[in-house]
Nucleic acid binder design. Structure first.
Lengths: 143, 143
DNA sequence: CAACAATCCTTTCAATATGAAAGTAAAACA
DNA sequence: TGTTTTACTTTCATATTGAAAGGATTGTTG
């Protein structure tokens, strides 16, 4: 038994192509390998079955629809009891785009995308119910 | 002149659908609006032209191809002169998946995806050339 | 008010991409 | 050596796509 399932170099090439542009046709990707579009399709299905590919989504610009504030928040919970309610709060909150349990600084790290500083302020107020926080604002995304 | 370009509720619905699954057919999305697939296609092209949709990509699981370490690093640069070399370093580094200039804690925030703690150690060593850092490891992604 | 233009949709149509199935070649293995 | 497995290609039927043309509605202007 290997640590990795049988994913070879060709699979990784296909993965890289799709990460760059998942709207590429199988045929187009196949020309680079080279391989027919159908063979590429079969490998992509394999990557999905293995759970390497979880789904298809967009690269997009939230700023263009008015979500001008991009914040990184480290959360320090008051008490162990706060975890479940905090997670429930974060999961249902539309503007909490990402949430991780972390070791290191604090208990959780989260990404917030929201329209205005005032709305961010509201979120921070709500966070105080669960614990404390440390805030960083993204000024520009370099990569 | 409006702050937003002409993006209406229907556009946002389409955007949400594509964020959930960008492999949905235009026709399928159209059934929920409701609208023909061709009309959905035209709106998607509009969203691309406006720069709201920047491209198509995957949701995937780096862990499955051996990238077991997911780290968030806050970087504090020594001096103003370090910025350009640091950015160049980060941009070309394969395992630095995301980089933001931030206000708040430190100068930069970055996401690192890498195979082993030992390799992370190497990156941290290299970071010391530019400044200091603070490290958090993602234990589990909640959202 | 009437004519016109603009917008946004539908319908139609031709080109293309897709997945399934069958066939083939090469490698792995008894 | 013969058999099985694997991974590809070819073929084919179906579905998706974008372009073009047509129609309805709304807004604009003389």
């Amino acid at each position: 038994m290997n640590t990795k399932p049988d994913i070879d170099e060709i699979d990784l090439q296909i993965l890289e192509h799709l990460l760059m542009d998942s709207s590429l046709s199988h045929k187009h990707i196949g020309e680079r390998i080279p391989m027919t579009g159908q063979a590429v399709g079969a490998r992509i299905r394999k990557l999905q079955d293995l759970g390497v590919i979880e789904g298809y989504t967009l690269r997009w610009n939230p700023d263009k629809i008015g979500l001008h504030v991009h914040a990184f928040v480290t959360v320090f919970l008051h008490s162990p009891k706060a975890h479940s309610t905090f997670q429930a709060y974060a999961l249902e909150h539309k503007h909490i785009a990402e949430l991780h349990r972390v070791s290191g600084e604090g208990c959780y790290w989260m990404r917030v995308r929201i329209s205005t500083p005032a709305e961010l302020n509201d979120i921070l107020d709500e966070l105080l119910r669960y614990g404390n926080y440390k805030l960083s604002l993204s000024i520009s995304q370099v990569k």
